[in-house]
Amino acid sequence: MDDNRLDEVKDVRWESAECSKGEINFTSRRRKSRIKKLLNGLVFVLIAAISGGASGAYVISKKYPNNYSSINQPSLEPKKEVNKVETADIPKNAITKVAEVVGPTVVGISNRAEGFFGLQDLGGGSGIIFDSNGYIVTNNHVVEGAAKVTVKLSSGKTLPATIVGTDSRSDLAVIKVDAQNLPTAKLGDSSKVKVGDIAIAIGNPLGEEFSGSVTAGIVSALNRRIQYAGAIYKVLQTDAAINPGNSGGPLCNEAGEIIGINSLKMGSDQNAEGMGFAISINEAKDIIKSLMDYGKVARPFLGIYGQGVVSEKNNIKGIYVREVVQGSGAALAGVKPTDIILELDGKKVTKFEDLADILDKHKIGDLVVCKIWRSGETIEVNITLSDVREKSK
């Protein structure tokens, strides 16, 4: 190949190379232009988003100033489940507080007596520690006839107990265990109790396996007078559940004060529900003190058992004498069964509770005038009041 032809070939290669180089440069410029436009778009969107967020935050802060800080500042605390309430957040109610305060002062009492096979369980009940040196008040029927009495504290410790004194008329008894620094219950004032007040009972219904049971209701009635086994009980009525084993335990108000001492649910033979009774604490205070000091309660006793009667035939209203206690003041004065007592101490009587009200105002040894209707005639006798404990002599 001559020199001229060689030069032409070089020129063609050079031009081809230049063309190729030129095409490559053209493609790179188009790609860069597209990337630049994409970046510009992203920057615009970012700026718009920031601007919109700032504007929205500004509007919210103006409209809801109190909530603004919580909206913009994320909480560092762990999130809680919705509607979940922790036990620690639930406030204690009155019943909870009473159970915590009074519960440790309530004990279980076991009554045992000699039987054919040795000591046999006669049942049990509850009691209230009212003196830190081991004095406990309970019902008389809980410890009546016992050869051995044991007390189980709320701590689970069991101790032998001695009977300090009993009073069958009020159905109260005081026992003692050999212990000191025991938790004690606070005795309240039952004269301040009103119908509808909260009433809380604590005790061992149906035995030790249910010890410390707490039931609650209201005070249903005040100053109920119930004649039972020849005695007049002045009691509070409540619909708080009181079952066998609750006897002798406390009935409390919502301040944790003892307003009554629970007794057996009377009327249980009638399948009555919601009718529990407690001896009012004001009636019990003097009896408890007398039992501690003397081991018994001295009170005047007329010496008769009977019931109110109305005779339309003779237009007579009074107390029909069903039984006269031997050796009593009534027996010595000549009162007889079938007599009808019209007046005592100058006051008309139509029901047995009337007699109790009059006797409560007198002392042992007082002389009272009793007007009696007998066989169509009215007579008067003078009765010297004796000790209720002398009725069996």
Rank of each mutant, 00 (worst) to 15 (best):
R5W: 11
R5E: 14
L6G: 10
D11H: 07
V12H: 10
C19A: 12
S20V: 08
I24Y: 09
S28Q: 12
R29L: 11
R30L: 15
K36G: 13
G41E: 05
L42I: 15
V43S: 14
G52R: 07
A54C: 12
Y58F: 15
V59S: 08
V59T: 10
P65H: 07
P74L: 12
K79A: 13
V82K: 09
K84N: 08
V85T: 15
K92S: 12
K92V: 10
A94F: 11
S110R: 12
E114D: 09
E114C: 01
F117T: 08
G125L: 05
S126I: 01
G127V: 05
F130W: 07
G145S: 08
V149W: 02
G156P: 07
V164S: 01
S168Q: 15
V174R: 04
T184D: 06
L187T: 00
S190E: 02
S191P: 03
K194Y: 09
G196P: 07
A199Y: 06
I202F: 04
S213P: 07
G217N: 03
S220P: 02
L222M: 12
N223W: 08
R225D: 08
Q227H: 05
A229C: 09
A229F: 11
Y233M: 09
Y233V: 01
V235G: 06
T238D: 08
I242P: 00
N246I: 06
N246Y: 05
G248D: 07
P250S: 05
L251Q: 02
C252T: 05
E254L: 10
N262P: 11
K265C: 08
S268R: 13
D269S: 15
Q270F: 13
E273W: 02
M275G: 00
S290E: 12
S290Y: 02
S290N: 04
L291I: 07
L291C: 06
G295E: 00
K296M: 10
F301M: 12
F301Y: 15
L302E: 00
G303N: 04
Y305T: 10
V310P: 00
K313G: 15
N315M: 13
K317F: 09
E323F: 14
Q326I: 10
Q326W: 07
G327V: 01
A331P: 03
A333E: 03
G334N: 03
V335L: 10
V335F: 06
K336F: 04
D339F: 00
I340F: 03
L342N: 00
E343K: 15
L344I: 14
K347P: 01
K348W: 05
A356F: 13
I358S: 02
K361L: 15
G365V: 05
L367C: 04
V368D: 00
V369K: 14
C370I: 15
K371R: 14
I372Q: 03
I372F: 07
W373P: 03
E377Y: 11
L385F: 08
S386Y: 07
D387H: 04
K393G: 10
K393Y: 09
